[in-house]
């Protein structure tokens, strides 16, 4: 995540001046990342869109209420994560977070391209191994290596200390590596 100084300036304008344009700029900077984060957890596009929009609206309201925001991105991820949890709590018919079908989602959305990628990048094996990880590990790995948040930002997003996040990442990656080592060669199809 870059341009944190710019984020802080925009945040200042939102907090003090209630500047919609500043809010729009933050939206532009983060909407894709937050959407993707939600999309990995929510099967329906419409739900993912609603949660993403709600994330930004809550962000605005909480900033106005004086919430201490250190990292804009991390804060947005945290709101989104809580909204996803609420979504599953309120929808009894939905899948649990752990069983969120993000991998199927990926496979179905661009199956043709994915086959190509599998051949050169082993991405299919990694995706399947990710699926076997517990949610906490998978979330940490996606935030760190897919969305490229820093450990500090992940700590804020997950409500943990940076030290705990480093340990979590280490264990997550270790587990993922073990899973990949033990995966049968035929897993790449």
């Amino acid at each position: 995540m870059s341009n944190s100084l710019q984020d802080k300036l925009l945040l200042f304008r939102i907090r003090l001046q209630r500047d919609p344009q500043a809010f729009g700029k933050l939206y532009d900077a983060y909407v894709n990342r937050i959407y993707r984060f939600v999309y990995f957890k929510i099967p329906l596009v419409e739900d993912a869109q609603d949660i993403t929009s709600e994330t930004f609206l809550r962000f605005w309201n909480q900033v106005q209420e004086g919430a201490p925001v250190t990292h804009v991105g991390a804060y947005l991820y945290r709101i989104a994560r809580n909204l996803v949890a609420d979504h599953y709590r309120t929808r009894q018919d939905a899948l649990s977070i752990d069983a969120a079908p993000e991998l199927e989602h990926l496979l179905l959305s661009d199956a043709k391209g994915l086959i190509k990628i599998e051949e050169s990048l082993d991405i299919g094996k990694v995706l399947k191994a990710l699926r076997l990880l517990k949610d906490e590990y998978r979330e940490a790995i996606i935030l760190r290596y897919v969305d490229e948040l820093t450990t500090t930002e992940i700590a804020e997003a997950l409500g943990k200390s940076p030290g705990n996040v480093r340990v979590l990442l280490h264990r997550s990656l270790d587990t993922l590596r073990t899973l990949l080592r033990t995966a049968p060669p035929s897993s790449r199809t």
Binding site: V31, N32, Y35, R36, Y39, F40, V45, A48, Q49, T52, H105, L106, L108, S109, D110, G113, L114, I117, L121, D122, I123, V126, I141, I142, Y145, V146, D147, E148, L173, L176, R177, L180
Partner: peptide, 18 residues
Amino acid sequence: IITTLSHLQRLRIGGEPD
């Protein structure tokens, strides 16, 4: 593994909003 994961974002597989 990390390189492979980073391609998830670059390739934008399925996670790009309309």
